[in-house]
Nucleic acid binder design. Structure first.
Length: 278
DNA sequence: GTGACCACCTGGCCGC
DNA sequence: TGCGGCCAGGTGGTCA
């Protein structure tokens, strides 16, 4: 599932192939993928624009064009494939960009959850998602004070709070479990009850976990690969996520799986002890 | 303002 | 073998 490391991996690969190249046509075959503006305006306006810079903001891929920013969210299973121009459309390929009239970039999304936006440069900071995203995990402003302030009224489990993109952006269900394991925090602990040491541990382990995952090219679980032929390796370094029934790498206790707000959640009952506050 | 729940969506898996 | 039901999960919307 694409979280920040997977998004960065995909973005880098797209940059290698697409930097300074022109989108000469765009065809949308599943309209709900285009979140803003209308499908017609999206296809018309993007045509003829050159792709200059490739960055990420949260789980969004941000491509700087001549007049606009192209924002792409992979959601659950969004992937990109390069194809020769004019090849028949494959199953689940919902958006096709023609590049330099030479080749095509196909966006495939089996579950149709992915979203794209085309936002004028002068509006990017006044429109979602930029107005709704919290700090990046590496932001120097992500401090214990920042977390304490943003969590002080949150009685929701810390597991749920870390998935809230308006606080820290880029963490998904997989890395959430890993971060809490490394921080020795029980996932159901109310976010507002964490002490400063625990908040510091979360910040530290978020950076450690994501840096390591980026180095490994992200995580491949189930059938998700970031791009054709590209498979992340971080799943080989997961401590608890998907490891139900297996021994904890720290203490040997069997990893347990529970549901937290509908999300599959894995933890070690010994290392991440439930306390009275939980 | 906050939190819980649901819909979106399809493929894989499991039990019968 | 085929069918039905459940599960996976990021995000946005609705409701209490």
């Amino acid at each position: 599932m694409p979280e920040k490391p997977e998004v960065i991996t995909v973005t880098k690969k797209l940059e290698r192939r697409l930097k300074n190249r022109k989108i000469t046509a765009c065809h949308v075959y599943y309209e709900p993928i285009i979140d803003y503006p209308s499908v017609k305006e999206f296809s018309t306006r993007i045509k003829g624009q050159t792709m200059h810079e490739f960055t990420t903001r949260g789980k969004w891929i941000v491509i700087t064009l001549d007049q606009d920013y192209l924002l792409i969210h992979l959601r659950m299973e969004g992937k990109f494939f390069f194809r020769e121009r004019g090849v028949p459309l494959e199953k689940h390929h919902h958006v096709v960009f023609t590049i330099d009239d030479e080749e095509e970039l196909h966006f495939q999304d089996v579950r149709k959850f992915g979203r794209m936006k085309l936002i004028p440069k002068d509006k990017i900071l006044t429109m979602p998602p930029f107005t709704e995203l919290g700090l990046e995990p590496w932001d120097k402003h992500l401090t214990v004070e920042y977390l304490r302030e943003h969590l002080k009224k949150k009685r929701i489990p810390i597991k749920t709070a870390l998935l809230d993109q308006s606080i820290i952006t880029g963490i998904g269900n997989i890395y959430d479990d890993e971060i809490l394991f490394l921080s020795h925090i029980f996932p159901l602990t109310p976010a507002c009850l964490l002490n400063d040491d625990e908040l510091a541990a979360i910040i530290r382990n978020t950076v450690i976990t994501l840096d390591k995952a980026i180095k490994e090219g992200g995580t491949t679980i189930r059938n998700y690969t970031s791009e054709e032929g590209v498979t992340g390796l971080f799943q080989n370094h997961l401590y608890v996520h998907t490891k139900v029934g297996e021994p904890c790498p720290n203490c040997g206790t069997k990893i347990v799986k529970i549901k937290v707000n509908g999300r599959g959640t894995y933890y070690c009952p010994s290392c991440q002890k439930q306390t009275e506050r939980s």
